[in-house]
Amino acid sequence: MKHSGSCHCGKVAIEVEGQIDSVLSCNCSMCQRKGALLWFVPRERLQVIRGEGELATYTFNRHVIRHHFCPTCGIHPFGEGTGPDGAAMAAINARCLEGVELDTLPIHHYDGRSL
Rank of each mutant, 00 (worst) to 15 (best):
P42A: 09
R113Y: 14
I20T: 03
H109M: 06
T82R: 12
W39I: 03
H68R: 05
V48F: 01
R43Q: 15
G86K: 05
M1F: 04
E101S: 12
H108A: 07
R33A: 06
I49F: 01
K2M: 10
H67G: 04
P77V: 12
V48N: 03
E101Q: 13
K34H: 14
R113K: 14
T104E: 15
P84G: 10
G112F: 01
H63C: 13
H8C: 00
V64C: 14
Y58A: 00
A13D: 11
P106M: 04
V64T: 14
T82L: 11
D111V: 03
M89G: 04
Y110N: 05
S29W: 05
R62A: 15
H76L: 13
E52F: 01
T57G: 08
A94N: 11
R43L: 15
G35V: 09
C7E: 09
Q32S: 12
F40K: 10
H3E: 11
D103W: 10
G83R: 10
A90R: 06
G51C: 00
T59A: 07
H63V: 09
G53F: 03
E101R: 10
V23H: 06
S29T: 14
F60C: 08
Q32L: 04
H67K: 08
K11M: 09
P71W: 09
A13M: 13
I107A: 02
C9I: 07
Q19R: 05
E44L: 07
E44Y: 12
N93V: 14
G51E: 03
A90D: 12
K34F: 12
H3G: 02
M30C: 05
S6G: 07
A90Y: 09
L37V: 02
R113F: 13
H68I: 09
L102Y: 01
G35H: 14
C70D: 00
Y110D: 03
C31W: 10
K34E: 15
C7A: 05
D103Q: 12
G112N: 03
R62D: 15
A13S: 13
S29K: 06
H8G: 00
A13K: 14
H76I: 13
D85T: 14
K11I: 08
E101L: 08
D111Y: 09
V12P: 11
G10R: 06
E80S: 05
V100I: 15
Q32T: 13
L105K: 02
C31P: 10
E17T: 12
K34N: 15
R43D: 15
M89Y: 10
G5C: 00
V23E: 06
M30N: 10
R33I: 00
